[in-house]
């Protein structure tokens, strides 16, 4: 036990416990306890997700009457049926369209402003920063109607100029991209990161006659991959999960996203609880896949990005 612990704690240099503590009985008891708690946490985290996938296999009677965790049968056809009935292929595509544009805007616009506020610091930048910080305090739902009206009037004007119906073109979706570009929290993440970049490097480029914008695209961004990753992940999660404004903007159009659909199912007339749960499963699959692929970058990025925020 002691040897095993000593090896497990081998080169540990963070936190409290070190390899040389392995001989203390307290450490031995604690370490067993820690492992058990970790296992419990993993179960608590995964249980709801596993449950919902299983529940999606149940029929409505089974869901409401059966006390078993497992479904009576693992017949995929129920999922296939709900998928088709609720047109999830379209919603997936729409969700990805919203997400990709949103991530792009989140990185570019917040990055640009953070660059100006953190490095260029033109006169008056403090006032701008104060205003931006203040927006963190505004619950987004309070002004959603005013926001919606602003968006509609611009979209309809553009649609009129282009002589198209806004609901049939990407004009309906574009506002959801650009809104990602006005996020105080991500902006602060960028700003903190930029402020710690080596100053001389940037100054050298400026002296070389690079324009400010060129410095941003050719020097700052390449140096900022970790924070871009963090903001991209935050933005992707936000874009995928958001529903109230998308619901207001996209209902009645062909762009309805997965979460809009899920939100509408609350009160939908021809959908029962099993359909709702299957829709939940569909809505969590893409985030899970993306997370599995990038988990290393995500978890380490959050930690480094977050600590400075």
């Amino acid at each position: 036990m002691r040897k095993l612990l000593a090896r497990l704690y081998g080169d540990k240099s963070v936190g409290s416990i070190r390899a040389y503590d392995a001989k203390s009985p307290l450490t031995q008891i604690l370490s067993v306890f820690f492992v058990l708690i970790c296992a419990l946490i993993i179960v608590i985290v995964l249980l709801p997700v596993i449950w919902v996938v299983f529940a999606g296999f149940k029929d409505i009677r089974e869901l409401n009457r059966s006390t078993s965790f497992f479904p009576a049968s693992f017949d995929l056809s129920s999922y296939v049926k709900t998928w088709g009935q609720l047109h999830f292929t379209e919603h997936y595509i729409n969700s990805f369209i919203v997400l990709i544009g949103g991530v792009f805007c989140a990185v570019i616009f917040n990055g640009l402003l953070a660059y100006a506020l953190g490095i260029l610091r033109p006169p008056g930048y403090k006032i701008v920063f104060g205003l931006v910080m203040w927006t963190m305090l505004i619950p987004p739902t309070t002004s959603v109607v005013a926001q919606y009206l602003n968006i509609r009037s611009v979209v309809e004007t553009l649609a009129g100029l282009m002589n198209v119906k806004s609901q049939e073109t990407l004009l309906a979706v574009a506002p959801l991209w650009f809104i990602m570009g006005a996020n105080a929290f991500w902006l602060v993440l960028f700003k903190q990161f930029f402020e710690e970049l080596p100053k001389d490097y940037i100054e050298a480029a400026t002296l070389d006659g690079c324009s400010d914008l060129r410095v941003f695209t050719h020097i700052i961004l390449p140096l900022s991959k970790p924070i871009m990753m963090v903001v991209a992940i935050f933005a992707a999660t936000a874009a995928w999960s958001d529903f109230l404004l998308p619901h207001l903007l996209l209902n009645n159009s062909r762009w309805s996203t997965v979460m809009v659909r899920l939100f509408e199912f609350r009160s939908a007339m021809r959908v029962n609880d099993t359909d709702r749960l299957r829709a939940v499963v569909f809505s969590i699959i893409p985030p899970i896949i993306i997370f599995s692929l990038f988990q290393k970058q995500i978890t380490s990025g959050i930690a480094t990005g977050g600590i400075k925020g």
Binding site: F34, C38, P48, V280
Partner: peptide, 30 residues
Amino acid sequence: LITETPVFRSLTRVAVYFPNILPGLAVMLI
């Protein structure tokens, strides 16, 4: 806990962050 545990360190780290990426609405329904 995650800092001090002898095993499962990176697994638990990934696991505790996992619910964050799930859409809030879906989580509420579950």
